[in-house]
Design a protein around this nucleic acid. Structure first.
Lengths: 238, 238
DNA sequence: TGATGACTACCCAAAAATGGCGAGTTGCTG
DNA sequence: CAGCAACTCGCCATTTTTGGGTAGTCATCA
């Protein structure tokens, strides 16, 4: 895939005005790459999955039914790594995973694949994947030729998709006071209330006030929930 | 900045073999863009800040001393948004923030700026920023001309920086069993132990075993800590 | 086939967190 | 200048969590 071709896609993705446009672009990219499949999909902060891709709808349903996301090494790897994932290099050693791969191959997916992990604020996570049914060697040259451009494409896809999907997080306007952030941060770091209070040089009771008010602002049921929400909203950095 | 020029940078960033190389690239990019400053910096999962940029070191120290990251609308905005941030569109209404901006301008930074937020696994967060001392109108055309390419540059910078910085997360190899993930997920969602146990149709005691073993695997001090770590490691999706 | 790890279940006592009550200062905003 | 939000401190009773010990089944792995 030549740089000029990429440019064309970026322009078009940039100009997309509906998710259907993205759907068409995905197919187009698959054809241009002569890939087996191309899939762009993302997960919002509530865990809902959206996507545009050339996978068989039946496979998508089957995947969700079997809860394959819990063992799929691509999903696991994308959460932990920053670089594009060559499926070949993932850990396929356990039995569950091998069964899953066999199932996917029966559905016409793989065995080769390249997945670009992409992240957004608020727990959003997206992937751009290209799959191939070829040999390792052939895939290596595919990867060499297209890997970098897939990163860029994935990035643009993601921005557009987030724009178009109007995914809104109800809690996005929550703002915590500096002391509330301090309190939740130390709790997230594993401090007990008394340790956190000591560290901040305030009484434990005062600390409690911050935790409580942060809890209410975040509509959280308890401290753990508040910390989890704050983390997901990017309110804390630990 | 023309596409060809960008290509040159990407090649060079790709070939960088030390953080010093990135430092040089940042200066080079500043000069090519005729920008006031260009800064690339990132924050690892322990909260340490690394970076390469043309800001005056005294300003960096001052920034950290004043804990400006807590009020800097660029930092706040980058955590919550996905798109490039034009500094003009940020919320500068509160007094603290205006004072901060005045302070930054005294240090020769701004008032115009464009910041690209970039995210990685494990709580990593990076920014690529270009600043200008020009008018709104002039900056609009700078933005139009360079915004897209800065996104790409930021992405490549980030990959390279993560490669070179050898930032390692000791917990990165932690793997939780499905039940452990279930348990922590419900706790992160605000369920009490008994609610989570009911939901999973297991006894509360069994649930405790999962929480405990997850805690040990994560080397966490308590449940809240375990949930925070698991979230940061991308082990949970809530 | 023996080992390992995941999954399931129980008890007890101590430590920590929660819910609800009240009260005063400071400083920014309208 | 009045209002509002953030920051600080305290008590009591109840609920929840935690630490440590024990034990069996089942499936996968070397």
């Amino acid at each position: 895939m030549k740089q000029q071709v990429l440019e064309g896609f970026i322009e078009r993705i940039d100009g997309a005005s509906s998710l259907g446009d993205l759907e068409r672009e995905v197919s187009e990219i698959r054809d241009r790459l002569s890939a087996q499949h191309v899939l762009y999909h993302w997960i919002n902060s509530e865990g809902r999955v959206f996507g545009a891709g050339t996978y068989d709808p039946a496979w998508r349903v089957h995947y969700l039914d079997e809860r394959y996301m819990r063992i799929d090494p691509v999903v696991q790897g994308a959460r932990k790594r920053f670089h594009p994932l060559n499926w070949r290099n993932l850990d396929w050693s356990s039995k569950d995973v091998r069964d899953f791969r066999a199932d996917a191959q029966d559905a016409g997916i793989g065995p080769q694949g390249l997945t670009i992990p992409i992240r957004g604020p608020g727990g959003q996570m997206a992937h751009l994947t290209a799959t191939m049914g070829c040999s390792d060697a052939e895939f290596a040259s595919f990867n060499e030729a297209n890997g970098r451009y897939l990163i860029l494409l994935g990035h643009f896809f993601n921005q557009k998709a987030l724009e178009l999907s109007e995914i809104r997080n109800d809690d996005k306007d929550v703002a915590l006071s500096p002391r509330e952030v301090d309190a939740l941060t130390f709790l997230a770091l594993g401090y007990t209330r008394s340790q956190a209070a000591d560290t901040l040089s305030i009484s434990e009771h005062t600390l409690r006030v911050y935790i409580e008010s942060a809890r209410h602002k975040l509509s959280a049921m308890n401290t753990t929930h508040a910390v989890a929400k704050a983390l997901n909203l990017g309110l804390l950095v630990i």
